[in-house]
Design a protein around this nucleic acid. Structure first.
Length: 728
DNA sequence: GTCGGAATCT
DNA sequence: AGATTCCGAC
């Protein structure tokens, strides 16, 4: 459903930074916008409207004025403010809703987590994480996305109990102020939230009393806007519902947990006290989380509810954790880049339970595969990865089980950071030039290596399209990008190749992982394209295809895609932009699981091939090639693909590594893709849109290595983050 | 209206 | 970094 895909987890760093972060001492415009949006009093000026995350500035001048007041820039006007908003396009925080005046749309995916940077994901099962979400207690400082959220209502308790450490520091920071304004002491809140101070004026104007914010409860505020589609509501709810009580996701995984949507009241009104809610511990979550579609949720959003209403944001730390866990797992499962996790220092990657036995031969692999298979708990996602035909059985990924310990096998790579071998460093896989076969060597003189041996350059960019797709499976573009980065490049395809005896993979240490972090497939483009329709990065997962003609993926996927897809009619649209976050952990998203699993496999192939068909192929029509049938088909394309990559890779090297430059890369990738063939625009979104694509081309092969790498990265990331936090 | 470059400020 | 300001182009 909903998107299986959910979104990307990996958000750019900036997305996670609290406003207070160094870079931005002052309140940021998007935060401000969110603040306004959540206040009823400003609904006449700016309000949610349309799709999820979409809002309209009803009174541009007023918004500008408010913004100017906040920033002490009396000269502010809409033109200037809008310029600032446009800068968000590239950042993907926002995009313009084309055709609608003064209408913009948030890409919450990017925004989420901002507030919860420190969440401890799955930490080991039992211990749950305390890590409470770092919700800033500072009242309201952060934005709470949708206005009153259930979450707020929810568990302040939990929220509160943040474990000290990082969190506290953070909280403090936030509290302090995230927003300083001109007036010294006054915090942002003052203006908007509290209304006590001068800000009052504005409010007054608006006629809202300070109290207004919350009071009304509900309804009022969001009234008209609402909208339709699953949009907000659905998404949010799905996720939100969940708060799972347990806190221990533990090994089990969230599977069953979240179920009650109800608990969270969907409705808006926040019980919370005042405005800023100072009290609120609650987190302002970003909708994104909520969005996560947990398919499993029992309830369905009621149509009646407006999206805007409460449900959206409801989600609690637990959810977040799950979310993250899911993400993590996904990463493993899909072989996605761990970068996604960099931001989460404390994350422990959950490992799936493995039932047991491994498959004989393949030790590691087998294990992984198995786990993956077993992973039922998590959600069957793992199945997604479809191994190639050859490798078929093995699932590539390494799942991390929640308890590594418990299950852990020797072979297994513990994900826990602690366990990680210190020395491990991240590796980058590179495909090497195809080794010449003996024959070839012999005949080498003649020439070129057979195709079969093609290698693909994983190179930084290369993955994007192809592999990237894979990422698209479930994760956000970011991930894909990550994969693109080559970090994890091994792909099933690779595997297959290998089996074939193809290309070798070279593992290289990556010097700066971080640099790559951001890379995304992404895009600036977003703005270019129609946001509404397109998805943003996240869309990878999203199912949008149905409508879109363009979706190549799907087609490629061919029948499989369609069939599998499940479609919810509505989903498409909404998901686009704001995709829900990853599928909930295991249990949660069944749909994820099942569907993807197999299908993915199939899809996988197609996906891969999505690649352009090289001219050589008459068959281009990958899509046609049945999923099932495909091995052959697959092979060819893969080869071609690899070849291409290889070339690229070399090229890249030659050119030097630009990897750092985020912008550059993405473009490059895209470009390449384009060149390659028309295959896909898919990538553009970064998503590969969900459905079909999911199957990523990730390489499973890499999977072997991947885990290690991942863990290493995580480890590193953790350390890093810790440091950062400390600093705070 | 919208977009985005460029210079500049904080 | 994140605006703010200005401005030409569409």
């Amino acid at each position: 459903m909903k998107t299986p895909g959910d979104s990307g987890f990996a958000f750019p760093d900036w997305a996670y930074k609290p406003e207070s972060s160094p870079g931005s001492r002052q309140i940021q415009l998007w935060h401000f916008i969110l603040e306004l949006l959540r206040k009823e009093e400003y609904h006449d000026v700016i309000a949610w409207q349309g799709d999820y995350g979409e809002f309209v500035i009803k009174d541009p001048d007023e918004v500008a004025r408010l913004w100017g007041a906040r920033k002490c820039k009396p000269q502010m006007n809409y033109d200037k403010l809008s310029r600032a908003l446009r800068y968000y396009y590239n950042k993907r925080i926002l995009h313009k809703t084309k055709g609608k005046r003064f209408t913009y749309k948030f890409n919450f995916n990017k925004l989420v987590l901002v507030n919860y940077p420190f969440i401890d994901m799955g930490s080991t099962g039992s211990s749950v994480p305390q890590s409470a979400p770092p919700v800033p207690t500072g009242a309201g400082t952060h934005f709470r996305f949708p206005p009153s959220t259930p979450s707020e209502v929810l568990s302040p308790n939990e929220d509160l109990r943040s474990p000290g450490g990082m969190f506290s520091s953070v909280a403090r920071r936030m509290a302090r102020g995230s927003v300083s304004d001109c007036s010294d002491g006054t915090s942002v809140n003052s203006e908007i939230e509290d209304g006590n101070t001068g800000a009052g004026e504005e409010r007054g104007e608006r006629g809202v009393s300070g109290a207004g914010e919350r009071g009304p409860g509900g309804g009022g505020g969001y009234r008209s806007i609402i909208h339709p589609r699953l949009s907000h509501e659905t998404l949010f709810r799905m996720y939100g519902g969940a708060g799972n009580p347990t806190g221990h996701p533990g090994s089990r995984g969230p599977t069953g947990h979240r179920i009650h949507p109800e608990p969270l009241s969907p409705f808006p009104v926040s019980p919370l006290p005042g405005p800023g809610g100072a009290g609120l511990l609650a987190p302002p979550l970003s909708p994104a989380l909520s969005m996560t579609p947990t398919s499993h949720l029992p309830y369905t959003p009621s149509p009646t509810l407006s999206p805007m209403l409460g449900s959206h944001f409801s989600f609690n730390p637990e959810d977040m954790k799950r979310y993250l866990q899911a993400h993590t797992q996904s990463v493993y499962n899909y072989g996605l880049s761990p970068r996604a996790f960099l931001q989460y220092p404390n994350i422990v990657i959950p490992q799936p339970h493995r039932p047991a036995a491994d498959k004989a031969g393949l030790v590691e692999r087998g294990e992984r595969a198995e786990r993956a298979a077993t992973a039922g708990e998590r959600g069957g996602e793992r199945h997604h990865h479809p191994p190639l035909a050859h490798s078929a059985h093995h699932h590539p990924h390494p799942p991390h089980s929640a308890h590594p310990h418990s299950h852990s096998h020797p072979m297994h790579h513990p994900l826990h950071l602690g366990e990680e071998p210190p020395h491990m460093s991240p590796f980058k896989f590179k495909l090497q030039p195809p080794p010449l076969g003996r024959k070839q060597r012999d005949s080498q003189s003649q020439g070129k290596p057979r195709q079969s041996s093609m290698s693909s350059g994983s190179g930084s960019g290369s993955m994007s399209s192809t592999s990237g797709l894979g990422s698209s499976l479930s994760f956000g573009s970011d991930l894909s990008s990550a994969s693109g980065s080559g970090i994890i490049s091994a792909s099933s395809s690779t595997q297959s190749l290998n089996s074939a005896g193809l290309p070798k993979i070279k593992v290289e240490p990556i010097s700066d992982i971080e640099s790559e972090e951001e890379e995304e497939v992404e895009v600036t483009d977003i703005s270019d394209e129609d946001p509404d329709e397109r998805d943003e990065d996240f869309e990878l997962f999203s199912p949008r295809h149905p409508r879109a003609p363009d979706h190549h993926h799907h087609r490629l996927a061919n029948g499989s895609t369609a069939a599998q897809h499940q479609p919810h009619p509505d989903e498409d649209l909404d998901e686009d932009v704001f995709k829900a976050p990853a599928p909930p952990p295991p249990g949660l998203s069944p749909f994820f699981t099942s569907h993807h699993t197999h299908s993915n496999v199939h899809r996988l192939l197609p996906t891969l091939k999505t690649e352009p068909v090289e001219p050589g192929d008459g068959n281009t029509p990958p899509p046609q090639t049945g999923t099932s049938g495909a091995p052959q088909t697959k092979c060819i394309p893969l080869k071609l693909r690899f070849k291409r990559r290889w070339s690229e890779d070399q090229r890249m090297e030659a050119s030097q590594e630009e990897s750092d430059d985020k912008k550059v890369r993405p473009e490059e990738e895209r470009e390449r893709e384009r060149q390659s063939n028309g295959r896909m625009e898919m990538e553009e979104d970064g998503t590969g849109s969900g459905e079909g694509d999911s199957p990523p081309p990730l390489s499973y092969e890499g999977s072997l290595a991947t885990p290690l790498r991942v863990s290493a990265e995580l480890h590193r990331a953790t350390a890093q983050l810790s440091l950062e936090n400390k600093d705070c």
